[in-house]
């Protein structure tokens, strides 16, 4: 890893700091303790990390834990600053339900919602299929089908978020209409495996398009990552991701699991062109307290991480505003 001196760093844009939490991790103990633990954890992290990804343990037989999107909805009113990127195993969920649940998170959090589009692999795939049953409209267990279905699901979810124009609710006493039906749109998505008509039942969320994140690792299919706004990549794979056609404009989140070499890894992430840093936390309260009192302030003092920003999550990540794809000219 090249050594970067302080002078070099001063010209570089500091990273957005986030954390990764696994909702199904064993650390959380039995369910009766979850409420207090999650509450304390987010009281500690709110305002320190700019965002948290909450991994979902869907059908994981070693511990599935709570539904991550619902947990995020529960956390949103009690943690007023942190961005909440909730994970969903898209291949085994109904895109319609995922789209309304994330849109609702965006309403509850007033613009801090994101979706982590999860592509299960290996044993997790067979566990998920066993838990829902092998059903028509859901993908087969092979990589190609799962990759295709995942990008299809993201496309549908994004279309559903746009299916109401921002000014669809008119409450017009003159015409006695609550809605302007011309501002609602069928998404009419059709693929080989499923069809979704729309529009959503939930009006367009505050951010228009909540942020969509996905993982990418060298040697895997890139379609899901290229359909996302934020791509979570291990530091050593960032250069390979950047070289992919279509990677331009994606914000890279450098994934760091090992906090021992944190500073070196953060420097390498900055140099490789990452925009954010995501540090995996175990869910231990002691570790979270150390993160808030020690790790995050030192990263900021070293100029590697920027001060916490507030406001809509898209804006914090510097993502462009998204015009509604269905909007009719005014």
């Amino acid at each position: 890893m090249p050594e970067i001196g302080k002078t070099d760093m001063s010209n570089i844009k500091p990273l957005i700091l986030g954390v990764a939490l696994d909702a199904g991790a064993i650390t959380y103990g039995p369910a009766e303790g979850w409420r207090d633990r999650w509450s304390t954890l987010f009281a500690t992290l709110d305002g320190v990390a700019e965002f948290a990804t909450i991994e979902d343990g869907f059908a994981r037989t070693s511990g599935d834990g709570p539904d991550a999107t619902l947990l995020a909805n529960w956390l949103a009113p009690r943690a007023p600053r942190i961005g909440l990127i909730a994970d969903a195993a898209l291949n085994f969920a109904e895109p319609f339900h995922v789209s309304t649940a994330i849109a609702t998170l965006d309403y509850v959090s007033e613009g801090r919602a994101g979706l982590l589009a999860q592509r299960l692999r290996g044993e997790r795939v067979s566990e998920a299929i066993a838990a829902i049953g092998a059903l028509d409209g859901f993908p087969r267990a092979d990589d190609e089908a799962l990759d295709q279905d995942g990008t299809d699901a993201i496309e549908v979810i994004r279309r559903l978020w746009d299916s109401w124009e921002d000014d669809a609710v008119i409450r017009d006493p003159e015409t006695q209409r609550y809605l302007d039906g011309g501002k609602l749109h069928y998404v009419d998505f059709r693929s080989d495996s499923f069809k979704i008509l729309g529009p959503s039942i939930t009006p367009r969320p505050p951010q228009g398009q909540p942020v969509v994140a996905a993982h990418w690792a060298k040697g895997t299919d890139s379609s899901l990552a290229l359909a996302a706004d934020l791509v979570i990549v291990r530091v050593e794979d960032i250069a390979a991701f950047r070289a992919l056609p279509g990677a331009t404009g994606k914000l890279v989140i450098a994934e760091i699991d090992d906090t021992d070499n944190l500073f070196a890894a953060a420097r390498a992430a900055v140099v490789a062109g990452a925009g954010a840093l995501r540090i995996a936390l175990s869910g231990s309260l002691e570790q979270a307290a150390r993160f808030a009192s020690d790790i995050a302030p030192s990263l900021r003092a070293a100029g590697l991480v920027r001060p916490s920003a507030e406001g809509p999550l898209r804006q914090r990540f510097g993502l462009p505003a998204t015009p509604n794809r269905y909007a009719t000219a005014a």
């Binding site: 956390l75 309304t100 609702t104 669809a168 209409r177 039906g181 939930t202």
Partner: peptide, 21 residues
């Protein structure tokens, strides 16, 4: 689309879980 009445709602489970908070 039926334009005269109230329409649009959140995801039921999501808003109930937020209300639990």
């Amino acid at each position: 689309f039926h334009e005269l009445d109230v329409a649009g709602r959140p995801n039921t489970l999501a808003v109930l879980t937020a209300l639990a908070s």
